[in-house]
């Protein structure tokens, strides 16, 4: 389990990294945390001919609040840094729920947000969070810079909207509306394993305590993270009671397409997706601070 040969280039700046990517295209991979890429290379499932190491691009790491209340996270920000960033966790509480489910401490010490989202593993937690939070992905090449909303960024199994000469340089999370509660839950065989199903829920109440907006995204139950917000939209305008939630769960179970794997049958995945959707919506609602 040793990687096949490749050429290694440590990029000295973002421009350098992007020019290298423009030069080598799909033959090159960016090396960020490497916590998914290096295992795949060790199994020789991935054999890039060029690795562009971006770990020295410290400008790409970190969280900032540039304008308004948007939260910008650089692609090279490691899970570790988010776990220890109280301001960030307060602003994006879904991360407080989800980060402990992401692999193990050593992986979180090294793995990066940009690497995770670019890898686009549908069983991974962050893509679902990005979809639930309607994050905007900031993508750059030598020639251009653009933003794509999360729902359009994830295009298929391990496939994103990123072109061969581009890099995901950061992700922008819009701030939570007032009276919003969130919850992320998942079922995995062991803590740290990829989710058999995971649910990110966001519930926003109006002044009267009725549901003003609801967002729901799932991981592990399709080829991409699944945006099930439409399926639960009947809650909008209603009081978010257990009975009201029960009425929309079947709709959630319909929009997902779990494939099953060695750990779970598709029916079990569909079943727990419903269970988790209900629990996450209830918890998110409770966390709005509004007693139902």
């Amino acid at each position: 389990m040793k990687p096949a040969p490749f050429k290694y280039i440590a990029a000295s700046s973002l421009d350098h990294a992007l020019s290298l990517k423009a030069e080598y295209g799909d033959d090159a991979r960016f090396l960020a945390g490497g916590q998914s890429l290096i295992p795949a290379m060790n199994f020789r499932l991935s054999r890039p001919s060029v690795l562009i190491d971006i770990n020295r691009l410290s400008d790409l790491a970190g969280v900032d609040w540039p304008e308004g209340n948007d939260i910008r996270v650089g692609a090279l920000t490691r899970y570790r840094n988010l776990e220890r960033n109280r301001d960030f966790l307060a602003a994006c509480p879904l991360f407080a729920d989800a980060l402990p489910h992401i692999a193990h401490p050593q992986i979180r010490n090294r793995g990066t947000i940009g690497g995770n989202l670019s890898h686009a593993d549908p069983a991974s937690e962050l893509p679902a969070l990005a979809v639930a939070m309607q994050a905007r992905m900031r993508i750059k090449s030598s020639a251009r810079e653009r933003e794509v909303v999360a729902a359009q960024f994830f295009q298929g199994l391990l496939t994103t909207d990123i072109e061969a000469d581009e890099m995901l340089v950061g992700v922008t999370f819009p701030p939570l509306a007032p009276r919003t509660g969130t919850s992320f839950m998942e079922v995995a065989r062991r803590r740290g394993d990829f989710a058999l199903a995971g649910v990110a829920a966001m519930v926003t109440l109006d002044q009267e305590g009725r549901c003003a907006a609801v967002r729901l995204a799932l991981c592990g139950v399709g080829e991409t993270p699944v945006d099930a917000s439409q399926a639960v939209s009947a809650l909008v305008g209603e009081r978010c009671t257990g009975a009201a939630i029960d009425d929309v769960i079947a709709g959630v179970q319909e929009v997902i397409e779990p494939a099953g794997n060695v750990h779970a049958s598709p029916d079990y995945q569909r079943h727990i997706a419903g269970v988790l959707a209900k629990r996450a919506l209830m918890t998110a609602h409770r966390r709005t601070g509004h007693d139902a």
Partner: peptide, 28 residues
């Protein structure tokens, strides 16, 4: 409860990694 060798009908082991063959950790 965790460890199962999952073979397909052609004798391929479908979970030949420690990510998918589940050894109990300190949490289990």
């Amino acid at each position: 409860f965790y460890e199962k060798l999952s073979f397909d009908d052609q004798g391929q082991l479908l979970n030949a990694s420690l990510a998918d063959y589940l050894l109990p950790t300190a949490l289990e």
